[in-house]
Design a binder for these strands. Sequence first.
RNA 1: GCCGGGGUGGCCGAGAGGUCAAGGCGUCGGGCUGCAGACCCGAUAUUUCCCGGGUUCGAGUCCCGGCCCCGGCUCCA
Length: 474
Amino acid sequence: MLRVYNTLSRSLEVFEPVEEGRVSIYVCGPTVYDYSHVGHARTYVAFDVIKRYLRLRGYDVVHVQNITDIDDKIINRARDEGRDWREIVDEYTKDYLEALQKLRVLVDVHPRVTEHISEIIDFVQKLIDSGHAYVAPSGSVYFDVDTYPDYGRLSGRLDKKMWSQEEFASEKKNPYDFALWKARKPGEPYWDSPWGPGRPGWHIECSVMSSKYLGRRFDIHGGGTDLIFPHHENERAQSEALFGEKPWVKYWMHTGMLQVRGEKMSKSLKNIVPLRDLFRSYDPLVVRLWLATAHYRTVLQFSDEVLEQAKSNLQRLRGAVQLLKNLAKEVEPEGRLSDWELGVFREMLDARREFYASMDDDFNASGAFAAVMKLTGLVYSQVSAKPTYLLVLRALRLFEEFNRVLGVLDEDLALGAAEVLPVDELLDLIVEVRAKLREQKNYELADYIRSKLSSLGVQLMDQGEKTRWILTRA
RNA sequence: GCCGGGGUGGCCGAGAGGUCAAGGCGUCGGGCUGCAGACCCGAUAUUUCCCGGGUUCGAGUCCCGGCCCCGGCUCCA
């Protein structure tokens, strides 16, 4: 039974989608004013893993992750650099989408704020009409927090004194009212509206886009813990006030922050790690594996050490898959299983069961990873010692199953076990020639071949007279 | 100050009262014996889970007190 930690209730809840068999997920995406950084990756990979597991579990999942392409920071940056704000948006949107691709994060819909202005205006007008918002003298529109009694519950801020927000206190009814629509300032981009020229407030966009793509109620709203207050609190107020249905979101899920040397990432600390830089040092799949095998709610520490660890882990996984594929070429179907084979098979099923049990437990990815490594160990120590058709094929199938969540072994598993590429045959030939050199004790040439292949990303592993090879990267 | 998260081996990190504390990295030893690498086997948290007290037949896990770290508290994933 799948259980999920809901920030709103602060407890683990049995997962039951609003609509049976379907799961709708909305994740707060970036404001595209700068390069995507590893903190973003933390959240995006986490929800990608969650989404992939739900699909593995048989749910039909829709994953929406927005792009905030108009906001104070974009405007400020454009002004500072003397560039058109749309250039800024295009440049960093491109960076963001490329990073997602490299990290194998599969998002179904990327709605942009600027493409939903009419829907936003419509939403704001309805809030005004229903008495939840008011137009200020400047033409800005504010949400009247006093009309929403449940304010503060998501973040645990039940005292009004903890609700203060934003600027323009002079024209707001209360200091904690927040902007739905901001009247135009000189030199800023704007859109016409019933209340005058202006642009959307930050919080309204997510209410609008989530309901457009997922409906008035949906299952999972995700983001980092830093968004709980005020952003998610405000979103909740907007949508529940307008729709009058509670809960608007069934499960609020928040990823832990990612730190560098025990501290948060920030510009002032100069410790932000842009993904484009990180990918120069590490294969993006190494980064993905690191993030994909951490529980989504824990606080993560970024360091070379953890990435080197992930690198070793990825190599180990790849080696096992390659080994299985090589073995698959050698084994043939058989009839009955020996007791030993049955025992190994059972242990594989144990690993599978542990994988699901862990992921069902609030998406405990680190526990699931332990199960993956258990399978890996079985391959190296048992399956390879006495390769049999069933064990080899079942192990491969299991890796494929796990990889539907992990997403780091696509290329390694890309071909069916029985497929043989010309490059495979060529490598086998080279290995055969090298074997003959070794027979003649021409080790110099044999080592030369090994070294050259290694620099091409092909690692040779000698074991007695037999030599296996795996493809490596980086 | 308020709200919230955390404190487990050299490092990372699991662990809803009972399974001599999962898994990974690293380190050490051995094997596989041209060398290397990969892999396999073994070892690696005992005044044992930040400190003190309590509950219990039994606590890392519950309760009380204390110490320490981190995040949010006006648009930061």
